[in-house]
Design a protein around this nucleic acid. Structure first.
Length: 353
DNA sequence: TGGTAATCTTACAT
DNA sequence: TCTCAAGATTACCA
């Protein structure tokens, strides 16, 4: 889903770019999107259980294209699901099952083209498929990294640490996570859209309605959450523009739930926006997920957080005792919030290797 | 009219 | 043992 309305707003500052710009450098790939695209060409086989490796071939062709241009791919895979996202996945799973059974019916009625159409709506990328690709990639000596949780956070970390020069992705979430150089919508020939050229600075001149000059990255992330993201549905009537306006009126504080932020929420409520009672708590959890999600550091060979954790005594979090009862005094450390909603690290760790 | 919400089309590859 | 759709177009609302 990504961030609602973000890419159209950024369109003015996105430039066409060929991947050969990164020749001689490492580039991280959001592999799921490639697997997903590659699945469409073999939807019938995947849904009927017939053997196929077309999706592997699809991904390998793209990897070979990168290698042709001397770009060194680092293939990143999703790991465990974040429990906070499980709500929507149930609906999607039901929809896929429904389309699959319709496809089987069409197949029995000898309507092959209709069956394929249904199956294309039913295809699902499974960990088994990802593993099959990983084995093929290892034969080519291509580096693979399985994220503890979401690939987006992992990709952003690799980019922020300088482990890779850019990220190839289809998802605007990667920008909210803070990645510095992103090549969006790259086609099979290596052409894509680059958000690298100092998008925050250029945005101020490119778009008269949104001026992000002087914005801390944290505030940009907050705007993205406000506009509606995978972790938190936006308030009714709230889109990217109103999110910008709401955040822009807040002072330059870094903390998600400082007094200024709470005041902005209260103002929205006074203006007639329906703000659920636990919106602040949910907003904070979304913010912490963007900032401190667990990722794997390939150099240290250990799990770390995307951004360094603030000190427990950081005064910017002190107000949480009052504004967000979610945090008990024993759980004041931001990470405690995430851990409470996460699967066991044991699982994440075993998947990272 | 601007902005948001809902709906439709494409994706792959031959 | 089986992971995420996204962009463009149109419709609706204050």
């Amino acid at each position: 889903m990504g961030i609602s309305g973000l890419l159209p707003v950024l369109r003015n500052i996105i430039e066409p770019r060929h991947v050969s710009k990164y020749a001689g450098k490492k580039v991280a790939v959001d592999t799921y999107s490639w697997l997903h695209k590659g699945s469409y060409g073999c939807a019938l086989e995947l849904c009927t259980g017939a053997p196929t490796d077309k999706y592997v071939t699809y991904c390998l062709d793209r990897v070979k294209m990168l290698l042709h241009y001397k770009v060194i791919p680092v293939m990143v895979f999703d790991g465990a699901n974040l429990p906070s996202k499980q709500g929507t996945e149930v609906d999607r799973k039901l929809s896929r099952l429904e389309n699959r059974s319709k496809g089987i019916q069409a197949l029995r009625a000898d309507n092959r083209s209709a069956a394929i159409e249904y199956f294309q709506r039913a295809v699902d990328v499974t960990p088994a498929m990802a593993y099959k690709l990983i084995k093929a990639l290892r034969k080519l000596n291509v580096e693979c990294i399985v994220a503890p949780y979401e690939a987006d956070a992992q990709l952003a970390y690799l980019n922020l640490q300088g482990y890779v020069s850019a990220v190839i992705s289809e998802d605007s979430d990667i920008i909210a996570f803070g990645a510095k150089a992103v090549l969006l919508k790259m086609d099979k020939d290596g052409y894509g859209e680059d958000t690298c050229p100092r998008y925050r600075q250029k945005l101020l001149g490119a778009c008269s309605t949104m001026n992000l000059s002087g914005w801390e990255p944290e505030r940009f992330t907050q705007m993205c959450i406000f506009a509606g993201c995978d972790y938190l549905k936006s308030l009714p009537g709230m889109g990217i523009k109103k999110a910008y306006a709401a955040i822009n009126n807040i002072g330059g504080q870094r903390a998600p739930l400082d007094e200024c932020f709470v005041r902005a929420i209260n103002k929205l409520r006074l203006d007639g926006t329906l703000v659920p009672s636990d919106y602040l708590k949910d907003f904070e959890r979304a913010y912490l997920t963007f900032q401190f999600q667990r990722v794997f550091d390939p150099e240290k060979q250990m799990l770390v957080t995307l951004k360094p954790l603030p000190e427990v005594r950081d005064t910017s979090f002190n107000h949480l005792d009052i504004q967000a009862p979610l945090l008990s005094s024993r759980q004041k450390h931001p990470l405690a919030v995430l851990e409470a909603h996460s699967l066991t690290l044991k699982l994440a760790s075993s998947r990272a290797h």
